[in-house]
């Protein structure tokens, strides 16, 4: 077991899989010589060479499209897009093509590609360096969307993503990159895509979150009165969502709070709330509450903390559903 940050867990997992499978290549802007904008691919080019850790020009559409080409030919490309907002120029390739090849070809051409994308706020950067667009890629059928919140989950989910026969958008929460270390098992393991994790068990209210927001939920739960028993679920995979885990928990608690960084309108939190009212209606003691970013452009540094859901807002929502 080694103590690792999220960044270190991803770097070592990439190295592990590149060692194991020569079809795996990493490509992106400054991923080689510079080791990536967040240094996630640091040292990989030195170890695996320029043929497998490939510095590309600034051309997201080209990176994504070329990765699709590699994938449909049987390779296992791992493109890095430096920030979630830079998916914009690559959107056509990702959504109109990568996501649809399997269906378009009736399963004869598939896209086993893992798109690594740093995501979310908390680094004081403005829009498209701090956005949370997971709903956009979830809404478009054909993509799997993953967002691990811990080094251990990142390792298991990244291995699953690379080995998955479909395109996976692997969102890495920037705020968590170096925020803490934990013991990560040395041996190889996978965590199935589509499987949520019960972070802490409880009986009075279910808190559902993913990515960096999980830590705001934990902080909020620390502040709850002794006699309140809250259950925290980290979805880990946004799509396909582990609806059974959500439903089982809310069936038990009868109350739910969904927490995300993204704006509220037509968001993943909206989908979770809809799922709960469809499946748990008669068990609910209170309306499902959503604690989200506001429906506005992700603000620059000074307003960032007003935008991001914090432990205070999460705690308030928990108290409201309990008092309903």
């Amino acid at each position: 077991m080694a103590q690792m940050t999220l960044v270190q867990a991803i770097t070592s997992t990439l190295a592990h899989e590149m060692e194991r499978d020569s079809r795996v290549v990493c490509l992106g802007e400054d991923v080689g010589l510079n080791g990536g904008v967040f240094r996630v691919t640091d040292g990989l080019q030195k170890r695996f060479g320029k043929d497998r850790v490939i510095d590309t020009p600034l051309s997201e559409s080209g990176i994504m499209g070329a990765s699709i080409g590699l994938a449909i030919a049987g390779m296992r490309p791992i493109p890095e897009i430096q920030f979630e907002g830079f998916l914009g120029p690559a959107y056509d390739q990702l959504v109109n093509h990568a996501a649809r090849f399997r269906n378009r070809t009736r399963g004869t051409v598939t896209v086993p590609m893992t798109v690594r994308v740093p995501v979310g706020g908390g680094i004081h950067a403005p829009e498209f360096h701090s956005d949370s667009p997971e709903a956009i890629y979830t809404h478009n059928p054909g993509l799997k969307v993953v967002m691990p919140g811990t080094p251990t989950d990142a390792k298991g989910l990244l291995l699953s993503a690379i080995r998955d026969p479909d395109p996976v958008v692997f969102f890495e929460p920037k705020r968590v990159y170096r925020s803490f270390r934990e013991e990560v098992p040395d041996e190889e393991y996978t965590i199935p895509i589509g499987k949520a994790k019960v972070v802490s068990e409880g009986t009075d209210v279910t808190v559902i979150s993913w990515g960096a927001s999980v830590f705001q939920c934990l902080a909020a739960m620390d502040e709850l009165p002794e006699d309140v028993s809250a259950e925290l679920i980290d979805l880990r995979t946004i799509h396909p969502m582990d609806s059974e885990a959500v439903v089982a928990s809310v069936e038990k608690t009868g109350r739910a709070v969904v927490v995300q960084e993204a704006p509220r309108l037509c968001s993943v939190a909206s989908e979770v709330a809809a799922l709960i009212q469809e499946r748990c209606f008669l068990r609910l003691h209170a309306p499902v509450q959503r604690v989200t970013g506001f429906d506005t452009i992700m603000p620059y540094a000074k307003l960032e903390n007003d935008y991001l859901p914090d432990a205070k807002r999460v705690g308030e929502a928990i108290r409201q559903v309990l008092a309903y």
Binding site: Q289, R290, D295, Q320
Partner: peptide, 10 residues
């Protein structure tokens, strides 16, 4: 949206 109405829940 954006609206000032998003106050419930938190």
């Amino acid at each position: 949206s954006p609206t000032r109405a998003y106050v419930h829940g938190a």
